[in-house]
Design a protein around this nucleic acid. Structure first.
Lengths: 175, 175
DNA sequence: CATTCTTTTCAGTCAATACTGAAAATATTG
DNA sequence: CAATATTTTCAGTATTGACTGAAAAGAATG
């Protein structure tokens, strides 16, 4: 696929940001490319367009699929897998939130619960410190619910609610 | 500072997760240590407790300060800087949200606006693709407002609102 | 079932980033 | 201002993770 300068700029930037968002450059670039592309692309074409190894595309595609951000599709008379990105941005956001929670929050909650459990028959650790750990556990559980809610509530509605909420609390006097 | 097994577990895990959250291991470990510690610690003590180089602590401390997550304090008759972490988790969350926005969202918005601008006198890029870029720009602006709101609304209130919101929309019939 | 097409795997290389230790800079004390 | 304490910088090294190319595995075709 031929990239115009604007498309290049978009894709390269997405790649750079990807590293900050916790995915590697190629994965983010492929995602950007598929998001922009009007038609599904096959791996070979992706590799050529982005000048990366075919094998690298294969791995990155797997990664994007594990996030649920891209889908396979096929064309008549063409055996190759073609890939297309979700195009709905709210859906994309929801998928990413869920996955981030699963990768970033859930394992920590598990660890925190384990710490609390061990804490019950440990005389070494000061109560104060155990309390801090419990605070974090409680906090992360709340955040976790939060993530779920953000995905479930139809999102434009959610935005309105939040804006409304901030007005309400402003009115009631900031606390 | 002597670490009990529970504290070790907590700190080591935090360090591992840090890498997923976009900060390096040492930075995350120091933050965890300071969060747990009942008193402010000086750099030397941090280095010993975590078995890392003194210089590494220096760099990491700077990083944590740039996030606004730790503060310097002093003790009578001790020239060394001591450091303590924010202890209020909502405040910590708010600080992190703001910084993430600044680092992850703002630069992308700048790039997207630049793409739109260039797009206005570019006949090469199909309209459809330009539209996609504009969609992302609009979306990220919304998300950005969203971040701001989340920080401004007193957070326990926010949670209630969101939970309430999801009930309301459920009642009105999911859309 | 041999051939061709396509995808995946993997050992080795490369690049980015974290970390160390020593030296330099800065600050405090008498 | 010399001596000491403390922090920062930085060149070099180590570690981690990304990427490549070649080979293997898997699928479809005639």
């Amino acid at each position: 696929m031929k990239l115009t300068p604007i498309m290049q700029k978009y894709i390269l930037h997405w790649g750079e940001m990807g590293t900050r968002w916790g995915v590697n450059r190629t994965v983010a670039q492929i995602h950007a490319l598929l998001y922009l592309s009007p038609e599904p692309l096959h791996a070979e074409e992706i590799a050529e367009t982005l000048s990366v190894a075919r094998s690298n595309v294969s791995t990155s595609i797997k990664e994007l699929q594990s996030w649920g951000l891209i889908r396979v599709s096929h064309r008549m008379g063409d055996r190759r897998d073609h890939f297309e990105s979700l195009k709905n941005l709210w859906e994309m956001f929801s998928v990413i939130m869920e996955e981030r929670k699963r990768r970033e929050i859930d394992p920590t909650l598990t660890m925190l619960r384990a710490c609390e459990l061990e804490g019950s028959n440990d005389r070494e650790t000061p109560k104060e410190i155990k309390q801090r750990i419990s605070d974090v556990r409680e906090f992360m559980e709340t955040i976790s619910t939060y993530y779920d809610q953000m995905r479930q509530v139809p999102s434009p509605t959610l935005i309105k609610l939040i804006k409304l909420g901030s007005k309400v609390t402003a009115f009631l006097g900031k606390k």
